[in-house]
Amino acid sequence: MSADWPAIVDNTWPAARYIRDGAFLLREGQGGGSRVSAATLQGTVTTGAIAEAEDKMREMGQRRLFMIRPGDTKLDADLEVRGYTVLDPVNIYSCPAAMLTDLPVPRVTVFAVWEPLAIMHEIWSRAGIGPARWAVMQRARGPKTGLLSRRKDKPAGAGFAAIHETTAMVHALEILPEHQREGLGGWAMRAAAFWALDQGAETLSVICTKANAGANALYRSLGMQIAGQYHYRVLNQTGEPI
């Protein structure tokens, strides 16, 4: 049985509010990024249904943004005709969590800690992950943790992981530029795997954009496989919210 990736994403990186409106599920993101702001198709796509969803997104002060998942071929084509452009195609990677516990994480390299420490917020801020996305982490209701990476006794990276049912998903994994290419991303994922198993999860997963060559190479090097994909369609017009 394949994993329910929409449910995993929504539960480990939740929107502030969900609104079922006809054919679409709308998300109020409150500035938390595309993943918590995009509308997803729940029924039959029609011109009228798209227009209604657009109106609701504008009422929320959000840009007109739709997530296109496998099978949403007609919606994808209809939005292209309406002037929507493709934004941020992504890969979902996963693997059995136990697969990444074959090596012990070196002592004091990664700490699993909740609540996030001030230094973790500083690291995220440097990567453009600000208070609106910290609020997303706080909203996650299941088991969750922050991941603080260290290099030579200095903070070097931060991440977040949460669990839905038996799947843990890593979000907001950032390594400071001066500590990249030192293997810290891999150790952070391994630490997340150990934490996930301790919490009763069986699968470890992560999302990254297809354009992020470094992240894709990292997850492939760990033996993780692409388990799902999606992209967004956004209407870029003058006066649209960013």
Rank of each mutant, 00 (worst) to 15 (best):
R17I: 02
Y230I: 01
A135D: 08
V45I: 08
I50M: 09
R63M: 10
V9E: 12
R82P: 06
I92D: 04
T73C: 09
R181A: 06
A77Q: 15
V86A: 13
R220C: 00
N212C: 01
S34L: 08
D88P: 01
E28C: 08
N216Y: 00
N11H: 12
A51D: 09
T12R: 12
F66Q: 09
W114L: 08
H179T: 05
D198G: 12
E122M: 02
A201V: 04
D102Y: 06
G159E: 01
V105S: 00
F194G: 09
R126N: 03
V105F: 00
R150S: 09
F111D: 13
P14L: 13
Q62C: 04
M1H: 13
V45C: 11
K74S: 14
V108L: 10
R58C: 09
P143M: 06
A77N: 11
A49L: 04
L197A: 04
S125P: 07
W134H: 12
R141G: 13
Y219D: 15
G146S: 07
L79S: 10
A188E: 12
H171S: 03
A156H: 06
R181G: 00
M189G: 02
W195V: 01
E240V: 03
R126L: 09
T203V: 08
L176Y: 05
E182P: 00
C95Y: 03
Y18K: 04
G48W: 06
L87I: 10
C95G: 10
V90Q: 10
L87F: 12
R141K: 14
S34A: 13
M67W: 11
M57A: 11
T203C: 03
Y230F: 12
R139I: 07
A38E: 09
A38Y: 11
L222R: 04
Q199E: 11
A39P: 00
F66W: 02
K152P: 05
D55L: 15
W124S: 01
W187Y: 08
F24Q: 01
I119K: 02
F111A: 06
D102L: 11
D88V: 11
S205F: 11
D76K: 05
S34W: 06
G239V: 07
N11W: 02
T40I: 10
T166P: 01
R82V: 08
L147G: 02
L147F: 12
P241M: 04
E54D: 15
Q42M: 12
N11Y: 05
A211G: 14
M120L: 03
Y232G: 06
E174F: 00
